[in-house]
């Protein structure tokens, strides 16, 4: 095991006769922002879900914070998940709870804080994602973009060591997209949080990533720093770069 906080070693994952991940190996060091880019259906979300045990790999090793987790029990995985926060593709907010209760949910579960401290944390996290006066609203009473930001606030609230983002800026306006990117950057620099960001937005990746992995049909086709990726000859990477230039 290297000094990596997250490491995949030859991970294979299939659904029926469809192999989604075909022997993936990579690592992410503490405080690093690692972007995993790829077109839709290439196994990016599957990769993240394997990391936190929401899916289990067929073969291969997955190391999280020095512990091999691919074959541990569901009960043991709860401890691993305490170290990880995940922002899902959907906002995944609990419909029956208010925004405040949603953000406070994980804090209440993980920490024995007094109510005043919980209120303070919730307010701080909502402020981080530029949300005010929505605490008492239900998720269905706010816009989709706001729901995604609440989801982000809920994840950050538990202060995880590793943050996983599954297309965090999809469906967000440019201002909020920049705010989310800045937040990922701040958390990485100030708290040394390791961030794995699944996305197909090369523009964002070039702006904030320390390293980028490009996934295609279950294989890593290229990886490196943004500067290295800019010089890539791989057709898919070139296509992503062209798209990023168009949107810049």
């Amino acid at each position: 095991m290297s000094d990596a906080q997250v490491q995949f070693i030859n991970v294979i994952k299939s659904f029926g006769d469809r192999t989604i991940l075909k022997g993936i190996s990579f690592e992410a060091k503490q405080g690093e922002i690692l972007f995993i880019l790829g077109t839709s259906g290439t196994g990016k979300s599957v990769l993240l879900k394997n990391l936190v045990g929401l899916l289990r790999p067929d073969t291969g090793e997955i190391w999280v914070d020095g512990e091999e987790v691919s074959q541990i029990s569901e009960e043991k995985y709860f401890d691993i998940r305490k170290k990880c926060g995940m922002v899902f593709q959907h906002p995944a907010l609990f419909d029956s709870l208010t925004v405040f209760e949603n953000v406070a949910f994980g804090v209440r579960k993980h920490y024995d804080y007094p109510e005043e401290k919980i209120k303070e944390i919730v307010k701080k996290c909502l402020k981080l994602v530029h949300l005010d006066d929505v605490e008492e609203k239900l998720p269905q009473d706010i816009s989709y973009g706001m729901q995604k930001r609440v989801s982000l606030a809920r994840t950050v609230a538990i202060s995880p060591k590793i943050l996983l983002f599954d297309e965090p800026t999809t469906g967000l306006d440019p201002v909020t997209t920049n705010a989310v990117n800045q937040l990922i950057l701040d958390l990485s620099k100030t708290l040394k949080t390791t961030s794995l960001v699944v996305s197909h937005d090369m523009h964002c990746a070039l702006a904030i990533a320390d390293r980028i992995i490009v996934l295609d049909k279950g294989n890593i086709v290229d990886q490196g720093t943004p500067a290295e990726l800019k010089a890539s000859k791989h057709p898919l990477v070139k296509e992503f770069l062209m798209e990023a230039t168009t949107h810049a």
């Binding site: 045990g53 995940m86 419909d95």
Partner: peptide, 18 residues
Amino acid sequence: GTMQITEQIDALKMLGIN
């Protein structure tokens, strides 16, 4: 079922809830 397809069940697991 709705919780399952909107990833709320996964979110519960991620927050340490069985």
